[in-house]
Simulated assay, not measured.
Amino acid sequence: MNVKNKTVVILLLSIAVILIIVALLFPFNKKLSNLDFSIVDANDNHQYELNEKLSFKINDSTLISDKKAVWYFGNGDSIVSKKNVEYTYEKAGKYLITLRIDNKFDFSKQINIVNGRALTAKDSIPKIFCEEFGYVGEEIVFTGYSPSSNNWYWEFGETGTIDSYEKQAIYVFNKPGIYTVKLETDKTRYPITREIEIFQLYEPFKEPVIVDSSSIVLNDIKRRLQIIANLSARDTRAYKDQVNYIKNKYICNDLSDVVVVINEEKYNDFLSYCQGLHYLDGNATIIQEIKLDTIKCFKQINITQKTKKTK
């Protein structure tokens, strides 16, 4: 083979090798050309702020599922991850965010971290967020708010000591009652307070008290008749009050339509009986027992009575 032919062969082999390398690399490069990432701020105000949690999201993580990926945040910090990551900057400034694939391919974006809203004296005054009431044994969440505070000291009023050092605390009360919740921070001189009422989760079962309504009515009427018997004949106002009470509460017809049976042998209508009991017998009668034909709207009342013995 002459020199010219040999040169042609070497050239063709070189081109073939180059084509093979390009063929191998081209699909990979084409695949990565679609790779991108976005930066999302926590409060969604489209401003990247100091101490704000930022999310770095890959548009399609399947593009690098078989590759090594490292996030570089431009301040010396890095995270090895092929998935979305979160990061918070502690200093304001401009940073170059780089997603490096297999130590060869870089995808970068610049980010500007700002101080955000300037804190005021009011931001040092904490607030307590919680429910107005809860139940024994229930997990109750207490949240403190104070942008300028870093340390939190909770007292929930049941133990007499500090119960939590977290910004958001969970507490379970063991007894019902009204508790004064106290919160102090590294910015407060005195604690702020808020009351919460804790109820028993289940009311203890109590046996129902059985009330004999008929005996209540009988005793009430008997007591009223005895008052009439004991009143002075001149005390007409008190007499009318007792009669009207019995009429309005227990009698549905006219008093003259209600039959009174005295000691099972004498008879009167109810109005005449009350008048005689008050004006004639006076303080000489003792009402011993009464019976009604019906508790509500009675039309007949049987009365057993006796006359007091005179000395």
Rank of each mutant, 00 (worst) to 15 (best):
I21E: 06
N51M: 07
N45R: 03
L13W: 12
I58P: 08
S14D: 01
N59Q: 03
L25Y: 12
D44G: 00
K53P: 00
L13S: 12
F37D: 02
I20S: 11
D60K: 10
L50T: 04
L19G: 07
F26W: 11
I39S: 05
L11M: 11
F56Q: 08
I21G: 02
S55N: 09
V22N: 12
P27L: 10
A42L: 12
I21N: 09
L24R: 10
N45K: 05
I58G: 08
Q47F: 08
I10R: 11
L54R: 08
L24C: 10
I10N: 09
L24H: 04
K57R: 14
L25G: 02
L13P: 04
F26T: 09
D41G: 03
D66H: 13
D44Q: 14
N43D: 15
F26D: 00
L32S: 05
S14L: 15
S55V: 01
P27C: 07
D60R: 05
I58D: 00
S38H: 06
S38A: 11
I20K: 08
L54S: 08
S55K: 14
L50M: 11
K53A: 12
F26Q: 00
F26R: 00
A42R: 14
L63H: 04
L13Q: 02
E49I: 06
L32G: 06
T62C: 01
T62W: 02
I21K: 07
I15A: 12
L25P: 00
N29T: 06
E49S: 11
I18D: 00
I15G: 02
I18Y: 10
E52T: 08
I58R: 11
K31Q: 11
A42F: 12
D41P: 03
N45G: 03
I58A: 10
A42E: 15
I58S: 09
F28I: 08
F28P: 00
S65W: 02
K57M: 10
L24Y: 13
I39K: 03
D36G: 03
V22Q: 08
S14Q: 05
F56R: 09
D41K: 06
H46Y: 12
A23H: 09
L63I: 12
N29V: 06
D36P: 10
